[in-house]
């Protein structure tokens, strides 16, 4: 049992991972960064000369005569995307925390059943879930029909194809991604700590604020990232229940590889999106450092 040989075996075991994920994730990502700094080719595609044009065109509109004017529409799309993703994350946290807490305080056998109950919608196709909302929200959908059947049709406000619908849809889509990591973090929380806090005169609110939340900070951070990342890149929800009226990051990227056919520009947007996620990723780290000195 020479440890050198054991080591070789382990490296061999890891080779396929590096081949697969390295080759089909790291390599393409580097390629995206590279393409973001090139020029758009004459017939679509890429002209391999170094250029920051793609990034410039995110902010400025350069006319044919060379005058540049500030282009606010992309900035606006970024802000809308970030705001929607941020709001989704916040709502998911507020809605999901009590749910996760409730599940985590159940006996273990019931706990796993309840977690499965929460997980099933997540294991359902994204498209199916969003489409289901169309049936409910639409003009001839369930709510509208029900209200008009009750003679209260005038109460109905169609929110389908508005940002509100997108927010609803995203919250619905990503709520399990918040609840599940919160659950696994909360179930590791020793109930005796809560009892000890109560024993030391902590009110229910103080128990939550001073014991439970600080000790589950890593789970909160994980849940927030798991929700924020897909939300910021989501282009299905805005396309379907947003009716394509609200353009988001994801739509913009997808567009460049579809009809617009501007790869460097699409790549530049992708890079900005990754940077945004990188920034958002340090946020939970900061929160965690403040809250979870123990954990």
């Amino acid at each position: 049992m020479s440890s050198a040989r054991a080591r070789t075996n382990r490296v061999l075991g890891l080779a396929p991972v590096w081949l697969l994920i390295g080759g089909l994730l790291l390599a393409p990502l580097l390629l995206v960064v590279a393409i973001a700094f090139t020029e758009q080719g004459a017939y679509g595609g890429v002209d391999w000369t170094f250029s920051g044009a793609a990034f410039v065109s995110l902010l400025y509109n350069v006319d044919f005569d060379g005058t540049a004017s500030v282009e606010w529409s992309y900035v606006q799309i970024f802000l809308t995307s970030a705001a929607l993703a941020g709001a989704t994350t916040a709502i998911c946290l507020l809605v999901g925390f009590p749910v996760a807490y409730f599940i985590s305080r159940q006996p273990p056998s019931r706990r796993s059943v309840l977690m499965l109950l929460v997980a099933i919608p997540f294991w359902t196709d994204l498209l199916v879930r969003i489409y289901a909302w169309m049936i409910i929200l639409g003009n001839d959908g369930l709510i509208a029909s029900a209200l008009s059947a009750l003679g209260a049709g005038w109460l109905y406000r169609n929110i389908l194809f508005t940002p509100k619908a997108i927010l609803l849809g995203m919250t619905y889509n990503y709520l399990p991604l918040m609840i599940l990591p919160l659950c696994s973090s909360l179930e590791k929380l020793d109930g005796r700590l809560i009892e000890a806090a109560a024993d030391l005169y902590a009110s229910r609110w103080s128990r939550m604020k001073d014991v439970i939340i600080p000790l589950t900070a890593p789970g909160i951070a994980a849940g927030c990232m798991l929700v924020f990342i897909p939300a910021v890149g989501d282009f299905v929800t805005p396309t379907i229940i947003g009716g394509g009226k609200t353009l988001l990051f994801g739509n913009l990227v997808a567009l460049q590889f579809g009809s617009a056919h501007n790869w460097p520009f699409g790549a530049a947007i992708a890079v900005v999106m990754l940077l945004l996620i990188g920034c958002a990723g340090t946020l939970p780290l900061l929160i965690r450092r403040r809250l979870g000195r123990v954990a």
Partner: peptide, 24 residues
Amino acid sequence: LSERLIALPLAIPEIVLAIATLML
């Protein structure tokens, strides 16, 4: 490091990964 690599697909929006792969 390898464990981080395996988790990486979860940390990148799918749309970015998809278009990156498409380009490759």
